[in-house]
Nucleic acid binder design. Structure first.
Lengths: 347, 347
DNA sequence: TTGATTTATTGGAACGTTCCATTTATAGCG
DNA sequence: CGCTATAAATGGAACGTTCCAATAAATCAA
């Protein structure tokens, strides 16, 4: 079947009785070669068990066909969904996305980015890890490799970002809680070194402002963006003298944690304390009680990011516009007795 | 900062006033070069904004430092956990794992594998997609690239597999249900074209046999391995004349679906119908009622798979032993009123 | 038939590394 | 001082492709 040493186009050429250039042309699907020749060559390729060496090709070619996706936390289903959305688009464009996980660790991220650059990726889609330094992408930009940020952005950076309208989403959710009659509100989870956090918290505060919620009645508890973090937030908040009666959570994981902590205290989300999440991951719908959450169309943002990347590569530019995705509040049980079921909105 | 065109070792050599060979040596951390020279070279590397071209290097070197991880469903947190376990090990070994998702699609898988081979991966860790044909890995084996299967295996294949003791896990879980007093049992979800399915169903049947459960009282419903699939399974099972009172589910996703469908009918898992899952994903613990499930130590299996791969690469062999991971039943609420809390076991 | 044009095919020079065989410099020793 | 032994640095060929310029073959116009 396959010969001993790795077969090259030279072996194919010999086998098919043509020149290596002809083989190369066939490999690239050039219309210049005579159909019969092409058939002959393709047969030889099959016979010698040839595998194309993209590394060698990239030595001559301008662009590779791989794009790197660098994700801060693959175990969060939210990011997995994002990745899947992008994959769909890239597959159709004949581009292969390689995914790498940084586990929210800037050092690891540095290594991963370096590695991807060394592989010669055509572009990079990144959801930056917490604590990424502003200069982390300087070298990559200098090398002319297009980068787009997905879901998260960096404080002062010219790199285009594709993200949901965090401010508006948080506003919508907070308004919803206030309309339900809550007057002492909390914002749970996340930390201020994340731009997303600033945006979501900003939306929360704006709504509070708009409805004249006094500053003293706004409880803000930073914390890990995980179930565990959520549990801790609730404990902290309930310990104060005039505890809040409702909370907007930084993301769904935090919200799940809050609901868990409530149950541990014999309280129920929705009736004893209102909880709203952010991201609307698939689980939100299936939780009990079902979680009210801000839907951000994750897969859609992934597709959008992929399209932007493709366009950047094509027009060999390193610049593109930001894109802010529409959000909508999906009202379920965790925020209190039902009235209506979905409040849509486009940004 | 960075020069116009991409810098190469030649540029560095010129900048540092040494030969390209010296630069190459420094890049590889050879002890042959004088420390002062190394420092000089490293400075030059920094100055010209050099990025190493691994493609070019691989043209000469035997092995690349990238390993491909091909996963059938990244949105399943179970597989994401697996991936994360492997990453830990690889990182420590200075190897970069690139992850790709096949979305349970054999055609997509073919493309992904081809692409990884073209990139010149040193090895491949694969959780094969459903319906993978036995010959899918022939060419890869012929090329001498080591492959290990994780979590799933292929019917008749010499490729080593790292997987949990599915048979034993299913046995354990079924026994648990029988001990709780159930006499009409169901096995929900999965389909017979998966080896894992055969193994888990086998364990279920063995336990039934051991406790003399008549064949007529065993209900087996195949279905999608998702929440949706689980819901459908329950509907089907409850429609028969003498419906089962307990079910072992192919995996946790199916179990969640079953619990959801129960609630829709006003029934509660644990009291009205016993449910046991498989995999023990993180959510299982947090569900309500908490899901009894077979824990398989996902991350541990991932680490094991990574180690096996590393060893195969090092000893340049394409063969290795299978590895069957220990399992344990984690008893929670969904299987009925508590008695004990965890039944451990090592295979 | 001949030259011009089009269609297929081909050799050879890159591309950016590594690695072997040398060369050059430095030190050690009697 | 001459010789060997060791340490440090180097030139050049090779790796498997692409692509340009060139050639060869086939077709056409006159």
């Amino acid at each position: 079947m396959a010969s001993r040493a790795k077969a090259t186009i030279l072996d194919i050429a010999r086998e098919a009785g043509v020149s290596k250039s002809t083989v190369s042309l066939v490999l690239q699907g050039s219309g210049l070669i005579r159909p019969e020749t092409a058939v002959k060559v393709r047969k030889a390729i099959e016979d010698v068990g040839y595998v194309y060496n993209r590394g060698a090709a990239n030595l001559r070619k301008a662009h590779s066909n791989v794009i790197g996706m660098v994700i801060n936390d693959l175990t969060n289903p939210f990011f997995a969904e994002l990745a899947v959305g992008m994959e769909r688009v890239f597959q159709a464009a004949g581009v292969v996305p390689f995914i790498a996980n940084t586990a929210e660790n800037p050092v690891r991220q540095e290594e991963v980015l370096k590695s991807m650059m060394e592989q010669g990726v055509a572009g990079l889609i990144v959801s930056p890890a917490r604590g990424t330094t502003p200069g982390a992408f300087r070298r990559i930009e200098a090398a002319g490799v297009p980068v787009v940020f997905a879901m998260r952005r960096l404080p002062e950076s010219r790199i285009p970002a594709i993200a949901p309208d965090n401010h508006r989403g948080a506003c919508l959710a907070t308004e919803h809680l206030i309309r339900k009659g809550h007057r002492r509100l909390a914002f749970f989870g996340g930390s201020s070194d994340l731009v997303v956090y600033q945006e979501r918290l900003g939306g929360f505060l704006e709504a509070c402002e708009a409805f004249a919620i006094p500053v003293a009645d706004r409880t803000i508890v930073e914390g890990e963006t995980s179930r565990k973090g959520g549990m801790a937030c609730l404990e902290t908040a309930l310990a104060i003298s005039e505890p809040p009666t409702a909370a907007l959570c930084f993301n769904d994981a935090v919200a799940f944690g809050v609901m868990l902590a409530l149950r541990k205290r014999g309280l129920e989300a929705g009736t004893d304390f209102a909880v709203v999440g952010f991201d609307d991951v698939a689980e939100a719908e299936h939780y009990s009680p079902a979680l009210t959450s801000v839907a951000v169309d994750t897969a859609g943002l992934g597709e959008r990011a992929a399209h932007v990347m493709l366009k950047m590569i094509q027009s060999r530019t390193t610049r593109a516009e930001d894109h802010i995705g529409a959000v909508s509040l999906v009202v379920r049980e965790s925020s209190g007795p039902n009235r209506n079921s979905q409040v849509g909105d486009a940004a």
